[in-house]
């Protein structure tokens, strides 16, 4: 039973990170029907910036969770800046182009950003300082769930609540939902669609950066390539849940996390990626709109 619980909570932790990144995919896709392939790279850049800031601070003698918070803030700022710039350079000029064009541009941007970090920094795995202390109150359950997992779960939970409030309760959120429904109509009623799109990228990037920081401090290392697999997995989660749907992204992330965790625990950890993609293929064949997605009829 403990083993099952451990896998369950491991899957939950992993899944909540996928969900965090998947939200960025789903929000962007919901508005401009583009797979933002470079989203995983934003996550990676977030992790890298956090590493650099945390690295400098620890070298100058700071330690503990406050360093992690500062690093996370820096990561969010820069990830948002990258997300914003990315959209302006690689996607905005392609608005109205054939569907394949922005997708290829996104793939190009993903390759570019990966290699930019590789060249500017290093191809090695860099160790991320251990900043999450072991909480005393966690000791009785330490064999099932550790303190880092708890931090991840709480952070993602709070972030998702904030996001839901932003989308449901604020004026900006309303504008975002309107733009998602019908872009030209939103423009007609006076919503600055370009700004909403930029904002979507910024919010998505912030979520990715949070995910990046959490994973980096959890796994303890960072590398230019981590964004790629995380990005693909998170996209899988978004599709699983029904792309364009925000609760769908969360659900998809959790389902994917559990699938991987249980497959690794009970079958073989070598094949966890195979299970993840197998699940994706299966869902797309059986229910292309995803678990919570609505099938959209194409207008003829």
């Amino acid at each position: 039973m403990d083993y099952f619980l451990e896998l369950f909570l491991g899957g939950l932790t992993r899944g909540s990170i996928y969900a965090l990144i998947a939200l960025g995919y789903t929000m962007v896709y919901g508005i401009i029907q583009l797979i933002n392939f470079a989203h995983g790279e934003i996550y990676m850049i977030g992790a890298f910036v956090a590493l650099i800031v945390a690295g400098i601070l620890t070298i100058y003698g700071f330690a503990g969770i406050s360093v992690l918070v500062l690093a996370a803030i820096a990561a969010i700022i820069w990830a948002c800046a990258y997300g914003y710039t990315l959209e302006k350079i690689a996607y905005r000029p392609l608005r109205g182009a054939p569907r394949l064009s922005p997708l290829i541009s996104a793939i190009g941007m993903s390759i570019f950003l990966q290699n930019y970090v590789l060249l500017a920094q290093t191809s090695d795995f860099l160790p991320f300082p251990n900043l999450i202390p072991d909480f005393e109150f966690m000791e009785p359950v330490a064999h099932i769930i550790g303190s880092p997992e708890l931090v991840i779960l709480i952070t993602t939970f709070v972030t998702m609540i904030l996001l839901t409030l932003l989308i449901k309760k604020t004026k900006v959120g309303k504008a975002m939902r309107a733009t998602q429904q019908d872009m030209s109509m939103a423009r007609l009623v006076g919503i600055n669609v370009d700004r909403i799109i930029s904002l979507t990228f910024i919010i998505g990037s912030a979520l990715a950066a949070i995910g990046g920081v959490l994973v980096a401090s959890y796994i303890g290392q960072v590398n230019f390539y981590i964004g790629f697999l995380a990005g693909v997995k998170a996209f899988t989660a978004a599709v699983l849940g029904g792309i364009g749907s925000i609760p769908g992204a969360v659900l998809g992330g959790l389902v994917l996390g559990w699938t991987e965790s249980f497959a690794a625990g009970y079958v073989s950890s070598d094949y966890e990626d195979v299970f993840a993609f197998g699940l994706l293929v299966l869902i797309l064949i059986l229910r292309p709109a995803g678990i919570l997605g609505k099938a959209r009829k194409q207008k003829v």
């Binding site: 000029p93 290829i104 390759i111 990966q114």
Partner: peptide, 18 residues
């Protein structure tokens, strides 16, 4: 810089000479 250039070229190609 090969892959860096490939990536950039893909973006630029799509924008300026699809």
């Amino acid at each position: 810089y090969r892959m860096l250039a490939f990536g950039a070229a893909m973006v630029l190609m799509m924008i300026f000479r699809p």
